[in-house]
Structures are given as C-alpha cells and as structure tokens.
Design a protein around this nucleic acid. Structure first.
Length: 644
DNA sequence: CTAGGGTTAG
C-alpha cells in the first residue's frame, strides 16, 4: 500500500525519499519548506504574518484589553458560545481563555473557534491561532489543518498550503479528500487551473483519494473559469458515469458560467435537467446566477419573472438577488427604479449592503448626478457600512467623467488615508481623468506612483495611456510607446490598434493610420466595427473619400457589416467633403437597415439643407431616421425650426 | 460536535 501518508512519514527521515514523495506532488517548494522546518525555524519564518492585519499579533491580550466574563464562564458548555461571536475581539478573548483552561478544551472546540474566525474572513488571524495551538500543545487534527490550509488559499497563498501540509505530516496528520479539495480550490482561485488539473489527475491516477462531488465541482469551476463550458459539462457527465451524483452546487457552477457567457438557453436547459431529471431543487444562488445572466443580456423583464418564480417556489430572494436588480436598473440609467428595489428589499427585511449601495452610487455617477452620488456615499457611515475600493472607484469614476479632477483627487487621497489601497482600476480611472482634462504631467506622475506602489498596469492601462496621448496631440509619443511594447500582448490587441488608428487619423496622419490598419492582417487580428469606422473616419478627414468608400464596401465582404456609427461617420465625411450626391443613397440604405442617425449627423444634415446644399425633399427621409429620444432634443428642434 | 465546492458592485 503506497498511501501518501506512509510515504511522507517515511520521507521525513531521508531527504531523497521526501523528494520522491514531493516530486510526486510536483511541489519542490514543499521540499524546501519541509527541510527548513527540520532545522526548527520554518514555522515562524514562512507562515503568514501580515502586518496590515491588526489581529495578527501574539500579544492579543495586551492589545484588546480585559476579557469578557460572559464568555469566560461558558467555554465548555455548548456550541452556542461560538454562534454568539460576531467580532474578532470576542473571538480572541475566547481563545485566550481557552488556552488557560486546564485541562485544555478539546481540539473540536478550538476548531469551532477557528471556523468562526475564518468565517469572519480573518484568515491571517486564523492561521496565527492555528500556529499558537500547535506551539501550546493542542493536539491539532486534520480538521484544524484543513482550516489552516483553506486560510492560506483564501489569502491567495495556496503554495503555503504545502508548508502547512509538511508541518502536519510530521505530526502524523494525513491529508484527506477535504484537504485536496481545499488545495484544488486554492489553485483555481489563483487561476492556476492547469496545476489544479495536474494535481486532480495525479490524485486519481495514484489513488491518493477518491474524488467526491466537491472535488468534481471544484474542477468544474476551474474549467468554467477557463471559459471551457464544454469540458465542464463533459466532466459533469464523467462524474455521473463514475457514480458520483452532481448536486445543486455542481449544476449551479456550470449554469452560472453559461449565464456569464450569455448562453442563457444552454443554462436553462441545464436548469431543467437538474430540476426534472435529477430532482435537485434550485436554491437562491442558482436563481441569482440566472437573474444576473438575464440582466446582463438586457432581459430584465424575464429576470423579474424569475424573481417571481423563485418567490412562488418559496425560495426567498436574498440581499444579492436585490443587488443584482439594483445594479441592472442603475446600468440602464433607471436610478429611481433601483431605489424602489432597495425600498422593497428593506420592506422584506433585507438590509442593503455595500455592494447594493456601490451599484447605486455608480448609477448616479453614470448619470452625472454627483451630488446624489456623494450624499449616498456619505450616508454609508450612518448605515454602518464601510466604503471599499470598488465604492471609491465608482465615485472617482464619476468625478473623472465629469472632469472634476479636484474632487477626484480629494477622494483619491481620502481612500488612502482610510487605509484603502488603490488598485489597478483606481489608477486607470484617475489616469483617464487626468488625460481627459489634459493634465498629462499629472498622469505621468500617477503612472510612476502606480509603479512604485507595486500595482501592475494592465492592457486597459496602456489603452488609456495611448488614447490619452493621442487626444493630447502626442500621437508620436503614443506610437513610439506602442513600438516599445512590440513584444507584449498589448501589441496584438485590436482595441489598442483601434485607439492608435483613431489617434493617427484625428491628427491628420492618415498614412500612419493606414499602415497600422494594414498591420492587422499580418498580426492575424480581425478589425471590428469600431476599427473600420475609425479608419473610414480617418480617410474622410484626409479627404480620401475613395478609400473611405472602398473600405466601407469591404466591411460586408469581411463579415463585419457597418453599423449606425459607420454610416454616420461616412455621411459626415460626404458632407464635409461636399459629396452631396452620395448622401441620399446612404440615408436610404440606413432606412432599409432600420438604422438611425445620431445628434451631430442630424444637425449637420439640417445645416446643409438650410444652406441649400442638400435638397429639402430629404427632410422626410431624415425625419424617419431621427430616433425617438432625439425628437425632443432642444438643439435639433431649433435647427429644424430654422428651416421653416 | 469541528474542516472542503456555486451567486452581486468598479
């Protein structure tokens, strides 16, 4: 019998055998840690001591003051004492008391406390307590180990799991299926899905444990994260074949992934299979995934129907369910409706959380209602809610979009003062704001700061910088930055190309734009509607209407038909270059396709009619192409008036 | 008795 436990215990006495065992797990860092440990100092050295965590201290008593008698009297009575703990002070006081009891409480009691601390998301602290339990002589078991390993994983330090594992091997604690599930989940959380897959296969091949429904579900989650729904479903079928019954979590994982990929019909099919064939009852999480999927597809009516369906099935919506709807309304600009949803949820006894309000704040920001956004933000404290990075980012985005960089900077500094670390989204938002108001120097300084703070720029960051440079008459700079990045994936990103083609075109460098456009096919990149529109706009601006028309015609051939924007761009090109004869044909084409004009194109057309460059008879056609929301537009109304 | 997998915001 080659059980992993047996091998590891054997290994502890010889380096080469330990290496054999660990190579089996392909974790060389594990070997390293295990041997540091044997020199007696690995534990303090390699365990996580996160300085930002106020609870991560050995001198807990000193820091948190006198103990509470109510907890002290109750340690061994029943589990209700653990249920009562809602904050870290109580948890740590209880831990201190437990340590002083003689005999020591059982490991189960300690595990219950670790569970509470972990549920409070104080992972470093939980690890710290585990560490103390070990050094004080509590006979930790596999359950304690699994909690500790889970804490490593939740801190995105899955590799440290192997440190804990190594430490526990020495105490004759063997990993079980739960341990492996936790580690696999950690790898999936860190997007190390290929490693997870290798470990999964190894566990099965070497019969180190029998995979259960949790393990399959974890692997399915990994496959979904890779965007591989097909393989995820294949694994679902495989587990059925192996007599492992998929449950509500397994199904919900795939259903959620399908929803996120907008494959709502496939999601519903799986949903039906789950309910009718497998008799599994969907729960609030399953419904939340579907409701969210429908909202993201703009099918909010159906989402509301699902909400009713779940209520009829006696599955009560939770805070998340309502938050999803709040967010959907806000994204449509319907903040009043979002507020109505919040009122309903409050009536039903659900307390809106920071996610709910962050969505609402974002909704106000999108509408440019910064006073409402800020007052909602300020009201959070009264509600006992603490704004987080996402909340701040929404507000910053609002100020930046409204070109109020002073306020944005104030809030940016406030978030740092409150101990929140700006992340890549924060920096991207601020950078974009600075470029918009033309503060290129400030942008540059912030980019340096971002680097100094250890925040890695992403594709979005570079897109923002290139666009910012282009819009601030620094196309040459953008181009040379682009060339500098020729090895990165940003150089093979169609969005970035589109930005540069647009920038080059707008600054009159049509040839550069054209060359960039031609580069696309060499790189195997497919231009999208935006890319074509931007190139056509560049041609028009340079007076190259022939090229513009040719490219416009090429779009259909390339399977990328022109949209509203493309038509408007070409129309404006015709007008600016006084090619009035082509205007009517284009308008008729638009009418045939059910397209509509945008505000600036309508006003240009009306101007030309007023100037008699275009015939009045075209007004009927134009009228048909003006979208409803523009009919009452005051600026157009005045223009239309002029014609009478 | 205690441990592992699925849902929401930028």
């Amino acid at each position: 019998m080659r059980s992993l436990f047996f091998i590891i215990i054997k290994c502890a006495s010889s380096k080469s055998e330990l290496e054999t065992a660990t190579t089996m797990m392909k974790r060389t860092d594990f070997v390293l840690h295990a041997f540091i440990k044997r020199r007696g100092n690995f534990f303090t050295n390699s365990f996580l001591l996160h300085s930002e965590n106020p609870y991560s201290s050995f001198q807990l008593g000193l820091r948190f003051g006198p103990r509470k008698a109510s907890i002290h009297s109750n340690v061994s009575s029943n589990r209700s004492v653990f249920e009562k703990i809602t904050n870290m002070n109580d948890a740590l006081n209880l831990f201190d008391e437990m340590l002083q009891r003689r005999p020591l409480p059982s490991v189960v009691k300690f595990n219950q406390l670790l569970t509470v601390v972990t549920k409070l998301k104080h992972f470093s602290c939980s690890l710290d307590l585990f560490k103390q339990m070990c050094s004080i002589g509590v006979p930790v078991d596999s359950c304690s180990m699994n909690i500790a390993i889970n804490c490593c994983c939740q801190l995105s330090r899955t590799s440290d799991s192997f440190v804990v594992l190594g430490f526990c091997f020495r105490r004759a604690i063997a990993p079980d299926v739960c341990t492996f599930n936790t580690i696999l989940n950690g790898l999936v959380l860190e997007d190390r899905i290929v490693e997870a897959e290798k470990l999964f296969k190894k566990l099965i091949k070497q019969k180190l444990c029998e995979p259960d429904v949790v393990m399959y579900s974890t692997m399915i989650k990994g496959l979904c994260k890779l965007g591989n729904n097909v393989t995820a479903v294949a694994l679902l079928r495989l587990m059925e074949q192996k007599n492992c019954k998929p449950d509500i979590v397994t199904y919900s994982t795939i259903i959620d992934s399908l929803c996120k990929d907008k494959l709502i019909d496939d999601a519903f099919n799986l949903f039906k299979e789950m309910v009718f064939d497998k008799g599994a009852v969907p729960d609030v999480i399953t419904y939340n995934s579907i409701i969210c999927g429908l909202c993201k597809l703009g099918r909010r009516d159906e989402a509301s129907k699902m909400l009713k369906e779940m209520e009829d099935a006696n599955i009560s919506p939770n805070v998340q369910t309502y938050s999803i709807l709040v967010d959907a309304f806000c994204k449509e600009g319907k903040v009043e409706e979002a507020e109505a949803v919040i009122n309903i949820m409050v009536k039903r006894g659900k307390v809106p959380d920071i996610v709910t309000y962050s969505s609402l704040i974002d909704g106000y920001c999108l509408r440019g209602e910064m006073i409402n956004a800020k007052s909602t933000f300020d009201s959070l404290t009264l509600r006992g809610l603490v704004p987080n990075v996402v909340t701040y980012n929404s507000l910053l985005n609002g100020y930046c979009k409204n070109l109020n960089m002073e306020k944005a900077m104030t809030m940016f500094h406030e978030m740092s003062r409150k101990g929140l670390k700006p992340n890549v989204v924060t920096y991207n938002t601020m950078l974009q704001g600075f470029f918009r108001v033309g503060w290129c120097g400030a942008a540059r300084k912030l980019f340096d700061e971002m680097h100094a703070q250890g925040q890695m720029p992403n594709e979005c960051t570079f897109g923002i910088i290139l666009e910012g440079l282009c819009n601030n008459h620094q196309v040459e700079e953008a181009l040379s930055l682009f060339k500098l990045m020729s090895d990165s994936k940003l150089n093979s990103d169609i969005f970035v190309y589109t930005i540069l083609i647009d920038g080059a075109g707008k600054s009159g460098k049509v040839d550069i734009a054209r060359n960039l456009f031609h580069d696309l096919s060499d790189k195997g990149l497919q231009p999208n509607v935006r890319t074509y529109s931007v190139m056509i706009s560049g041609f028009c601006r340079g007076g190259l209407l022939g090229d513009a028309k040719l490219l416009f015609l090429k779009m259909d051939e390339s399977g990328c038909p022109p949209n509203n924007v493309t038509y408007c761009v070409l129309l404006q090109g015709y007008i600016k270059n006084e090619h009035y004869d082509d205007v009517e044909t284009l308008l008729q084409e638009m009418d045939g396709k059910g397209y509509s004009l945008d505000a600036s194109t309508v006003s240009m057309l009306l101007d030309q009619i007023a100037a008699k460059s275009l015939d009045r008879s075209m007004l009927t056609l134009i009228g048909k192409l003006v979208p409803e929301e523009l009919i009452d537009d005051p600026s157009l109304f005045r223009l239309g008036d002029k014609l009478k």
